[in-house]
């Protein structure tokens, strides 16, 4: 966009998106209202559940990564049983069986759900739209290095890129490698380098 000092572009209003509900939106409303009407759940319980899910954020996952970078014994427990290790930090993984896959010497991991959009929501919140898109889901398994490249992530030729497809009951998080130059950093400082995308595996952590 050039800045000519003039304000010549038009401001066509974006149309409202308030058409009739879709089939599944109507079904959700109907089922929810029935459940409330029959006393199975209360409106307050529905609201609280939505609020709890909205409150989950990548900050939780960043805390887990920072702890694993700081404490090798915690890292070992995290790789053995991800859900149990997160519980140590007060993070309730609900019914999720978390598998943490660690990037290592010449190994880079990336996660996907080719069949739908399984994602470690209990740990890092709601997935980005691109994660649910058909393009990402089909391409990252077929041409992972090209997709990583589009995120600005170049993995050396002699490294393995390993794609994890969550097709069933496991959910995945990538444990990135601790960036160099962070010796002596606190867990809080380290957590600031951990992004949502590096826990999906499409990028690396921020540099210090």
């Amino acid at each position: 966009m050039s800045d000519t000092g003039q304000h010549s572009h038009d401001h066509t209003p974006r149309p409202d998106q308030d058409g009739p509900p879709s089939y599944y939106q109507a079904m959700e409303t109907a089922v929810r209202e029935l459940l409330i009407e029959k006393g199975v759940v209360t409106a307050e319980e529905v609201r609280a559940a939505v609020e709890a899910m909205d409150a989950r954020s990548p900050a939780q996952g960043a805390r887990v990564v920072a702890r694993a970078w700081s404490d090798p014994k915690f890292k070992a427990r995290l790789l053995k049983d991800g859900s149990a290790a997160c519980a140590e930090l007060g993070i309730d993984m609900g019914p999720t069986h978390l598998v943490v896959v660690a990037n290592g010497d010449k190994l880079h991991n990336v996660i996907v759900c080719t069949l739908c959009s399984c994602y470690p929501r209990f740990l890092i919140g709601l997935p980005p739209d691109w994660y649910k898109a058909r393009a990402y889901r089909s391409r990252v398994v077929r041409e992972p290095r090209a997709v990583l490249g589009e995120f600005g992530t170049e993995i050396p030729d002699d490294w393995e890129v390993r794609v994890h497809d969550s097709t069933a009951d496991m959910r995945y998080m990538v444990l990135p490698r601790r960036p160099e130059g962070t010796e002596g950093w606190s867990e809080e400082q380290l957590a600031g380098l951990v992004t949502r995308d590096c826990m999906i595996g499409v990028t690396l952590p921020k540099s210090p």
Binding site: E143, R145, D157, W159, V161, R162, H164, D165
Partner: peptide
């Protein structure tokens, strides 16, 4: 998985299967 793939030899895919 893709014999005609130009990808690097070491690259892998892990999938949950019943």
């Amino acid at each position: 998985l893709w014999p005609d793939d130009q990808g690097r030899a070491k690259d892998g895919v892990e999938v949950e299967i019943f």
